[in-house]
Amino acid sequence: MAVTAADVLFWLLALCAGVSGWRVFATDSMVRASFLLLLSFLSVAGIMLLLAAPYIGIATVFMMAVEMMVMALFMVMFMMNPAGLNPMMMVHQHKLAIGAGVLAFLGLTAAILLTDLPSDPVPADRAVVHDLGIELLGDSMLVFETAGVTLLATMIGAVVLSSRRGRYGDADTGSRPPGLEPGGDPAGREPEEGGGGHHHHHH
């Protein structure tokens, strides 16, 4: 079988996706991790472009760029070391996780190799983006709208979950940082009671 330019490009992108995906969990800094994950997504988007999916491929770039940017924003927010350039290694059940990952890969690969896969490629002259648009607002409109409503519900849910003010008082009332060791003294500061100084109780 002749090796075409598309094949070479595919394997390069696949290598990039895999290696950057692995480096996400091996790098020092969480900001680096989130942009390595973005690199993995960009590589997969490139493969999708090779697979004749111009809309999904580029939309992945757009969406994942925004999503990873938000992720990096949260990283910087939650970290003690804002620039995130200090070394860190925070893992648990490491061997088990490696085993599970390798097992998942081998299992899936075995399933792929043993299955008789369909072969009915996209015709070269098919207007795939046009088809997708007609499908989204035609036969599959209910599916599409359900996804839209789900996203709306997600937005409302996210705001409710993360909001500080709640029906039963402030979310962080009486909150206590976790102990440095199990059952030990709390790490870090304890937040002011009620925050903002509105609910000072005098005993």
């Binding site: 809309y55 939309a59 770039v61 757009f62 207007a127 983006v129 046009h130």
Partner: peptide
């Protein structure tokens, strides 16, 4: 000249 030029600009 791709069919999704405006999405590429957005990316």
């Amino acid at each position: 000249d791709i069919s999704t030029g405006i999405v590429l600009w957005g990316a």
